[in-house]
Computed example of a mutant assay.
Amino acid sequence: MKSSCKHMIFVLFLMNIALHSEAQSAAFKALLNTIYDKDFPLVQHTDSVLIQNAILLDTRELEEFEISHLQGAQWVGYNTFTLKNVSHIPKDSLIVVYCSVGARSQDIGKRLKQAGYKNVYNLYGGIFHWVNEEKPIVKDQSLVTDEVHTFNKTWGMWVKKGKKVY
C-alpha cells in the first residue's frame, strides 16, 4: 500500500475516533504528529513572549482570514502565496506562521526558510488549537469574535470552542 494511502487511512481513523469527545484531544494530537516535520520548529500557544514579539503570518485562504485571525496577523495566503507577499519583512525577523491545524503553515514556513528567513516557527495546532485553548481571535484586526472558519465541515470536528463557520 502506498504511503499516501496509508496516511489517508490513518487520518480517517483519527477522525472516527474524534467523534467521541473524550478521545478528541488524543486524536487531535495524533493527527498533528502525522502533519509536522520533526525538524521544523513549533511554538506553543503558551509561549506568549515569543508570539507577542513575532510577526504573525496567516497562511489560510482569504475567506478564512476574513472570518477571524490572531490579533495583528498579516494574511499571506496559501494557494496564492508568493515571496513578494513577505518582501517587506526583514529576513532576521521573528516569524510565526499558522493556518487551521499547521500543515499549510508548515509548507509556507519551509518556503520562507529556503528563501533565507532565519527565525520561522509554526504555531502548534494552528488557529483550531488556539481557539480550543480559549485564546482570543479577532475580525478586522480589533473586533474580538468567537467565529472561526473551519476550512470545511469535516475539519470542523477539531474545533471544540467558539462558533464554527464553513
Rank of each mutant, 00 (worst) to 15 (best):
Y124A: 11
V96D: 03
Q24N: 13
A27E: 07
S25L: 04
Q44S: 15
K164S: 14
S25Q: 08
E64G: 04
V49C: 10
N79Y: 07
S105I: 09
T46H: 09
M8H: 13
I55Q: 10
E63Q: 11
K29I: 14
V43Y: 08
N53L: 08
A115M: 05
A30D: 07
H129W: 09
K153L: 08
Y117P: 05
M8Q: 13
G126P: 04
V49L: 13
E22W: 02
L31R: 00
K38Q: 10
G125D: 06
F13H: 01
L14C: 00
A54S: 15
L12T: 09
G125H: 06
V11A: 11
P136T: 06
H69G: 00
P136V: 06
S87I: 06
W158T: 06
S93Q: 15
K2N: 15
I67E: 08
S100Y: 11
I137M: 10
A30I: 01
Y36Q: 05
A18F: 03
A18W: 05
T59V: 08
A115D: 05
N132A: 13
E63T: 14
E63V: 11
D47K: 00
V11C: 01
I67N: 03
H7S: 10
L94V: 09
N33G: 04
V43R: 00
E61F: 02
L112V: 12
P41S: 09
E64Q: 08
S100I: 00
P90E: 14
